[in-house]
């Protein structure tokens, strides 16, 4: 009993801090989402699940949700695949290895808003360097098909290094004997990768997937700076939509409902991965 009490004392600051900065705000947003609250008109009334009912028939919400899922899916897959390739390259012994590892991290180190501004210039349809290099005249940020892909390319450029470094750390944990043993058994590079590297790297890959999916699903700054959600809402993600409703049209109740939805989606993704990880990796 005594021990438990001491323990409570020790975790109390952490719990109080979490309560103040996380739990209370989340409860507050959930509470707000059950209201019709319009600052301009001084309206604040309890409407139960009305906002969520409206959300189900809000075309713009579904559009934003599908944009977000597409963005998350494509960018995370590309990041993990390219990150793995980079990690495998960096895992080899070569001169200047340290320098390369440091340089690879540069895109990750640049604040998102800055890189988004940079990419805005790169994508510029008039004098952008990307069209110049490709010899094309693509309207990257203004074309309903290309705009979302342009945002994905930027996100992949920015976060592949993060995936690569985590995966590299995982690679280095794999004992060299396993490779030697497999080679003695006559395995070529493909089979080595398939039967040694991949299974042992799985827990790390799952962790990268969790981190990246959660981050990508909440994407805001990259898209907001690059396109503001346009053209025709083809790049509007859930966070961008929630921001506009909360802070531009000031529909606090409905905006909170959108924010709660993002929160729930992120929670579902995280739970999904944890279940997956528990099953596949035997909860090691």
């Amino acid at each position: 009993m005594r021990r438990v009490e001491t323990g409570t004392w020790f975790v109390m600051p952490a719990i109080l801090l979490l309560a103040a900065v996380t739990i209370f705000p989340i409860m507050d947003v959930v509470y707000l989402s059950l209201h019709r609250k319009l600052l301009i008109f001084g309206i604040s009334e309890f409407t139960g699940l009305q906002n969520y009912r409206f959300l189900l028939q809000d075309e713009r919400f579904w559009r934003a949700l599908s944009n977000t899922i597409y963005f998350t899916g494509l960018s995370v897959v590309l990041e993990v695949v390219l990150g793995l390739a980079l990690a495998l390259l960096m895992n080899r012994a070569f001169r200047g290895k340290g320098l390369v590892r440091a340089l690879v991290l540069v895109p990750w180190a640049i604040p998102t808003v800055v890189s988004a501004k940079m990419w805005e210039w790169i994508y510029n349809g008039d004098f952008g360097v990307l069209n110049y290099l490709l010899g094309t005249k693509v309207n990257w940020l203004g074309d309903p098909f290309w705009a979302l892909h342009a945002a994905i390319i930027m996100d992949v450029w920015k976060t592949t290094p993060f995936a690569a470094i985590l995966l590299l750390a995982g690679l280095q944990l794999i004992p060299a004997d396993l490779y030697s043993a497999a080679r003695v058994d006559g395995a070529g590079p493909v089979r080595l990768f398939r039967y040694v590297t991949l299974p042992l790297l799985k827990p790390v890959i799952l962790i990268v997937l969790i981190f990246r999916s959660l981050d990508a699903f909440r994407v805001f700054d990259a898209v907001y700076v690059l396109t503001g959600g346009g053209p025709a809402n083809t790049t509007e993600t859930l966070s961008v939509y929630a921001y506009k409703v909360l802070f531009q049209t000031l529909q606090i109740g409905y905006g909170s409902a959108l924010a709660v939805t993002v929160f729930v989606c992120v929670g579902l993704i995280a739970t999904g991965y944890i279940l997956l990880m528990g099953r596949k990796a035997g909860l090691r």
Binding site: R60, P144, L250
Partner: peptide, 23 residues
């Protein structure tokens, strides 16, 4: 109109859809 900020949020994507040719 005090509703202007809401109206413009509706108009922006619709007008954008017209000039980019998807509506």
């Amino acid at each position: 109109s005090p509703y202007y900020m809401m109206m413009t949020q509706i108009l922006q994507p619709e007008f954008s859809a017209v000039i980019s040719g998807i509506k």
